[in-house]
Design a binder for these strands. Structure first.
Lengths: 238, 238
DNA sequence: GCCTAGGTCCCGTTT
DNA sequence: AAACGGGGCCTAGGC
């Protein structure tokens, strides 16, 4: 039983359990489509009444329960969880346990429409551009997008109250704290910047400027910036 | 072709396209397991080289591309996106377009190991307990968990700089701003509280207290609280 | 292990 | 539509 693909429509509960157990043992990805209830207990607690869902068990210990809508799984366990599949009163049970924090998922399937087991070969990892890091790179390569004479010195500089995206000095040698956002900045972006500026001010008597860099900024965030004499610099990164 | 379950191992590209198109038209949930590359362009941009993945197309327009590891899809489009499936040079192509913001996913399948189409019936929605709202409820029902004489007045009270979880008054009639966290509070929790306290102070000359309520608090968050004369109240909600 | 912060965050709610 | 904040957020990177 080492075929890369095993797929079975309307399996008996016994057969479903057999396939799923071998799938888990064999580090394969399992897919179940069926009618089920789901109980969760851990950081929070939830109950999901009977309905049709797609369940995915990954070889890294992730568990996903998807409804027919939304991007998010309705229930899940992250990588590292332990999966168990067994029969109880003629029904297929899927259990997933995570330790630290302890969280348990209990799935009771009243019907299994489909069960599949797949050996997925995938060495590739995703390449992403357009993240905050890319914006920071741009600023280090072309500091003039902030202003003439700006000199970036450190990135991810640790302070008492968090890490500064970019720390540098302006034309006049004043300290400059920059918080970068890849999308429209909001109140929490300003709060962040304010926290870092304060942190730097606690350790010096010299003036410290704070600049929020983003493609846009909400109205209330702008007001909040002004009330603390912080600045906004629009930087589009395309 | 209105069976609730359609499942096919190693379909020809033509047959896969046929099944998927009918699945989309019929508001069914589609599952593809196959070898593919994925290109994404939108708020950011990404490329994923050839590998085996699980692709889910939901009738609400969600698209998920899952690798064999992690809880998160490697690529996705949220509900409301439009899916198209077609043949190109003998390969199955799955395209998903979202407008506002415009985002496109392009999936080229070099091999299809499995294709399934399912009519999922699901009227149930999840019941969750142990959320922040539950903690706020506890405080409104038993204000003494904050302190003797505390009177909660409003929840989600809007201010210039955001919404206060709980606004109330203490035994001595002083304004009290409470920020509630259902898990360990961190620096950003304190930033939030500070922002709301400031906002209230801007509109009064009377003293304003700020209390962070959480099951725990990080060391640096505690320091940050102290530096602004804000308070921490441990509340477990179990 | 904890802490910090980003994310193509998603998502619900309110304005 | 924008804005605001929660989430069982998840995930990566430091320490």
């Amino acid at each position: 039983m080492s075929r890369h693909t095993i797929a079975l429509e309307s399996p008996t509960p016994e057969r479903a359990v057999e396939i799923l157990r071998k799938s888990i043992l064999g580090s394969r990805t399992s897919i179940i489509v069926g009618r089920c209830i789901v109980k969760y207990r851990g950081r929070a607690e939830s109950f999901l009444g009977e309905g049709d869902r797609v369940i995915i068990l990954k070889p890294d210990g992730s568990l996903l329960v998807h409804k027919a809508s939304k991007r998010e799984p309705v229930n899940w366990n992250p990588p590292g969880s332990i999966h168990r599949v067994y029969l109880k009163e003629g029904k297929v049970i899927v259990e997933s346990i995570r330790r630290r924090p302890r969280e348990t998922i209990f799935i009771e399937l009243s019907e299994v429409y489909f069960v599949g087991s797949f050996k997925l070969i995938d060495e590739e990892c995703i390449m992403i551009t357009g993240t905050e890091k890319d914006v920071v790179d741009i600023i280090f390569r072309s500091p003039e997008v902030i202003e003439k004479g700006f000199k970036p010195l450190y990135r991810e500089m640790s302070t008492k109250y968090g890490k500064i995206d970019i720390f540098g000095v302006d034309e006049k040698g004043r300290a400059v704290v920059i918080e970068v956002k890849r999308r429209k900045a909001d109140l929490s972006s300003v709060s962040q910047l304010l926290r870092y500026v304060e942190s730097v001010r606690e350790s010096t008597n010299s003036p410290v400027r704070g600049i929020l860099v983003a493609p846009d900024c909400s109205a209330s965030a702008r007001l909040f910036l002004k009330s603390h004499n912080l600045e906004f610099r629009k930087v589009m990164f395309k």
